[in-house]
């Protein structure tokens, strides 16, 4: 089930009903990919959200009926197999994490709160391969899911005014790495020494929607050797 409607005067928004899931994200990415080919420079930008795809067209040059009809047809069709194969072929991104209270103010608290040992928290967080559902909040920030229900925690009632770059965080059943220093309300359980967003790199963001991501526990010396600092 889906609906199509305006997103301002230059945008068209496709939204699917129901909960987000990997196959839906893949489908939205596939339609985004086809839209770029179909509309070329008329399409000035596009954003995939959890259950949405929003297309932004060049002002004065938007042919709403044509674009809506195309989107209607694409949303109703099966996801392009070749695109799915490309997604599946993307290598798993492995993020090293030093899980230690000196870089993770909520690690011990979370273990106690959820009646787990710190080692179990680390195992539960680093075992699964996560899926990147959405980007946003800040450049390089990627919402990863779904974490073990045993790790589920509410956000902080009052967000911290500054979370350091690389902080590995949990909220509800999502996990993420803060790309730069920023305010943040998620619970911090580790630190990743890699740069999540670097304008000089191509592409600038280490993670993108549709990626598979795994966390790998590292020691303090490995963390430092990879460029991490406390």
């Amino acid at each position: 089930m889906f609906e199509i409607g305006p997103a301002g005067e230059c945008g068209i928004r496709l939204v699917f009903s129901g909960e987000p899931h990997e196959a839906l994200t893949s489908k939205l990415l596939s339609i985004q990919h086809s839209a770029r080919q179909r509309f070329g420079t008329e399409l000035i930008d596009s954003v995939v959200g959890y259950t949405t795809l929003t297309l932004f067209f060049e002002p004065h040059n938007i042919e709403r009926d044509r674009a809506t009809a195309w989107l209607q047809e694409s949303a109703g069709a099966d996801t392009d197999e070749a695109f799915l194969a490309q997604l599946a072929a993307r290598p798993v991104v492995v993020l090293p994490v030093w899980y230690h209270p000196s870089v993770a103010p909520d690690l011990e608290w979370l273990a106690e709160e959820n009646a787990l040992s710190v080692d179990t928290v680390i195992d539960l967080h680093s075992d699964p391969t996560y899926f990147a559902y959405a980007t946003g909040f800040a450049p390089g920030f990627c919402y990863l899911g779904t974490t073990s229900p045993k790790l589920a925690v509410p956000r902080l009632a009052t967000p911290r005014s500054e979370v350091s770059a690389g902080s590995v965080a949990l909220a509800d059943q999502q996990t993420a790495v803060y790309p730069g220093p920023s305010p943040g309300g998620w619970r911090l359980i580790g630190s990743c020494p890699l740069r999540l967003f670097n304008l000089k790199a191509s592409p600038p963001a280490l993670l993108t929607i549709g990626d598979s991501v795994r966390f790998e526990p590292v020691s303090e010396s490995e963390f430092r050797a990879l460029g991490g600092s406390v």
């Binding site: 997103a7 945008g11 987000p20 959200g49 932004f56």
Partner: peptide, 10 residues
């Protein structure tokens, strides 16, 4: 709500 694109003027 689930995060989704904003737009100019939203």
């Amino acid at each position: 709500l689930l995060s989704e694109a904003t737009c100019y003027g939203a």
